[in-house]
Design a protein around this nucleic acid. Sequence first.
DNA 1: GCCAGGAGAGAACGGTCATTCTCACGCCGA
DNA 2: TCGGCGTGAGAATGACCGTTCTCTCCTGGC
Lengths: 190, 190
Amino acid sequence: MDDDAVSHVVAVADDLFFTHGVHAVTMQRIRAEAGVPLKKLYAMFPSKDELLAACLQRRDQIARTGLRERASGALSPVERVLSVFDFLDDWFHQPGFHGCVFAGAFGEAGAAAPVVTAAVQAHKRSLLELLTELVAEAGPPDAEAVGAQLAVLFDGAMAVATFTGDTDAARHARHAARAVLDAALVPARN
Amino acid sequence: MDDDAVSHVVAVADDLFFTHGVHAVTMQRIRAEAGVPLKKLYAMFPSKDELLAACLQRRDQIARTGLRERASGALSPVERVLSVFDFLDDWFHQPGFHGCVFAGAFGEAGAAAPVVTAAVQAHKRSLLELLTELVAEAGPPDAEAVGAQLAVLFDGAMAVATFTGDTDAARHARHAARAVLDAALVPARN
DNA sequence: GCCAGGAGAGAACGGTCATTCTCACGCCGA
DNA sequence: TCGGCGTGAGAATGACCGTTCTCTCCTGGC
């Protein structure tokens, strides 16, 4: 029962944070929108920062699940890696896309809130792992390095889309990713 | 006289914003550190947001100058493009590097402050232009597309360094950039 | 019916900050 | 010497928001 209430609150808060920005959303508003008393809100999460961190963990979960699902539909290992950028592309084109929550949260609360920083870093780390894993299946000699390069592309697409509103960023990243993978998979004349 | 005062204030504010984050720095503090009366501060800039925007414009200028200087020392067009990432690498390893100011400013003030958003977008646009220009000199058929891909790498390195503190990000971006350039310059078996 | 206990709703508190206002001081011209 | 004026320094204002507190009402047991 209580679990339901908690995840409901997190879902509502996440939506508000994501849409309007962390700073612009007050606890009052979350309370009102979620239909819980303020007291209960603070019983669930000792502070706004903790609530935000919970939202970020939820996002992390959702993103990873989505990425894996998308990857599982791909036909080859290379396509599996590239599907990550297709996922991103879809996401950018969803109505109401407002940029990366993690970037926003980090900017607004990061420095002062260790919980938030930790959540953001955990997310980035888990993405790097996922990418490296997908790359490894494609079999280049240096999966770690290639994974790191793809992570840069992933975050870069996010940053470009967030800051400039250019929703083609994911496609540019995909092209670049293909070049990186090709280079890594061909024995290569250096 | 007045110009000097203004640029002094901007320099001081920029330093504070960059080091401690926009939100953590109060107008009082800027006033104290810059040694100007609050009144004069508000005579120079009607609001904190405007002051921040001025700081971002200054950064933009500095970054572009630095990038061009660095590029001018490179031996070939391709090296000239890649020198951009060396510049980034150096920057990441400077003591007191705290991530991209533009990202921070956007997160903290962006949504609510159109001036700030505009400054960030102008910066990203000018970077994209610079990259595209450098790429064009290397002569691939589709400089625009390659420039956009490099911009993604550039911002990605920034994002990774900012969020995770991984200062190797620029090197990963450089490797990826070389792969992208190689692919663009070889007539290529698709 | 009556009392205890908990939960909901929102008022109150404490602190922070951008922004504005006041006031006193020192300089300059007469 | 005196009056006015620009200027510096910081106090006052007004608003906001996270967090806590209080009061009321409802429920459930006897």
